[in-house]
Simulated assay, not measured.
Amino acid sequence: MNDILPDYGQGYELTEQGEILTLPDDAFALMLTAKIPHADTQNIVERIEVAKLKYRRRALDERRDAVRDLADVLEFLRAEARTVLASKDEADLFNLANNFGIRHHNKDQKTDYRRTH
């Protein structure tokens, strides 16, 4: 079955659990297959692995959840992230997570991503 699925659009694969997932394009392939080099399995590694699986599903809501999950992991790692990120980069990442309808739900957030201004 996996030999036939890539012929459909952007490509799909059938997992051993019987779930059809999108094949990542080259830009995302390395990130989605990379091992997470962190000792905290429960709070970091497992959450990232679940987010990667959600992202590969076809539903936009699942992808949005995946991004939210990754933002939550980044929040958990915020002190560590400050040691490797410039303060502007850290601020930009949390601006995206908090002000673009990803983590919180309020009327001031940007949520209409399809419109161009």
Rank of each mutant, 00 (worst) to 15 (best):
E49Y: 14
D65F: 13
R47N: 12
D65S: 15
T111M: 08
V84D: 05
D108S: 13
Y12Q: 02
A51I: 02
Q17T: 00
R56C: 02
L5K: 07
N99V: 06
I4S: 06
L77K: 08
V50P: 12
G9F: 01
R114T: 11
S87T: 09
A34T: 01
K52P: 11
P24I: 10
F94N: 11
K107I: 04
A81R: 03
M31N: 14
A39T: 09
Q17Y: 02
T15R: 07
K35Y: 10
E13T: 12
K88C: 06
G11Q: 05
G18W: 01
K88A: 11
K35G: 10
F28T: 11
P37A: 11
R68L: 13
T22G: 09
R103W: 11
Y8W: 11
Q42S: 15
L60N: 15
L96C: 10
N98A: 02
L30D: 08
A97L: 02
A97K: 09
L53T: 15
Y113K: 05
R115Y: 10
L23G: 13
E80P: 08
K107T: 04
A27G: 00
A27L: 13
L85V: 09
F94W: 04
K54T: 08
I20N: 07
S87Y: 07
N99P: 07
D112I: 03
N106P: 05
A71E: 01
A27W: 13
L93H: 02
Y12L: 04
A86S: 10
D69H: 01
R82G: 00
D69P: 00
E75C: 00
K54A: 11
I20A: 05
R63D: 02
L85R: 07
A27C: 06
I20D: 04
I36S: 09
N2A: 09
I4T: 01
R68W: 13
L32I: 01
T15W: 07
